[in-house]
Nucleic acid binder design. Structure first.
Lengths: 115, 115
DNA sequence: TAATGAATTAACTGATTAGCTAAAAGGTGT
DNA sequence: ACACCTTTTAGCTAATCAGTTAATTCATTA
């Protein structure tokens, strides 16, 4: 499973998105996270391992506890890459870029787009 | 199912993300989309209806064909809202905001965080 | 109206997923 | 070693999902 696949898969669960929101400001122990959900600790643990596998959070053992925290850069990076792939630039920006290209080289802009 | 739920659910499939990428530059007929995948037309049709239900694409009948196109604003809007919810602002921005709060009211910033 | 083509809906199947409980693993302290 | 606590793994079940083929809907054209 490719990395973006794992990321979008991880984000597809409301529970997991909530976990990310909880971790937004500070790391939390596994127990503290589980306490906020109406489900068993093993269920939450599985969600955490999916988030970790997607590279969205890190974990560190601290004595008998396990601390989890966000990997903010990775989440932002993946979403950003996706936006670039799927959302075209605004019309005015696109016009600017085309003008630059046509001034500088003989290639039409279509020839440079990823296929 | 809430709207962001539908959006992330829609994005969780590689096939559906590919469809969005195909629609990035121009609308396409259902058949033209299905032709790019190694699966039956009904399967693709189901993917399209999930994307439509999430508000990520629109559809319009054109004679016997059905044209599909992206709803770029919606996709960008949802991802942006999510980023805001989950990715904290930069440290310096956060310091600024805290300074404002502490100047204005007696509550520490923690008391204002979602529980 | 009948025939054809495009797309969707219906009905079904196999695989995956989310949850549970019970058991194990890892760490602390007596 | 033992008891205790936190967390994860194993094994299971019910529900959901992605795909299939067959049948239906909608539009066109003879």
């Amino acid at each position: 499973m490719s990395s973006p696949d794992k990321v979008f898969d991880a984000l597809a669960s409301t529970t997991r998105r909530k976990i990310l929101a909880y971790l937004r400001d500070r790391p939390l122990h596994a127990g503290a996270i589980a306490a906020r959900f109406d489900m068993s600790a093993p269920a939450v643990s599985k969600h955490l391992s999916i988030l970790e596998g997607a590279g969205l959070i890190w974990k560190r053992r601290e004595g008998q506890f396990v601390l989890y925290g966000m990997d903010q850069g990775n989440l932002a990076g993946h979403l950003w890459a996706f936006m670039q792939e799927v959302c075209p630039p605004s019309r005015t920006l696109r016009r600017e870029v085309r003008a630059e290209h046509e001034a500088g080289e003989g290639q039409p802009p279509e020839a440079r787009r990823a296929e």
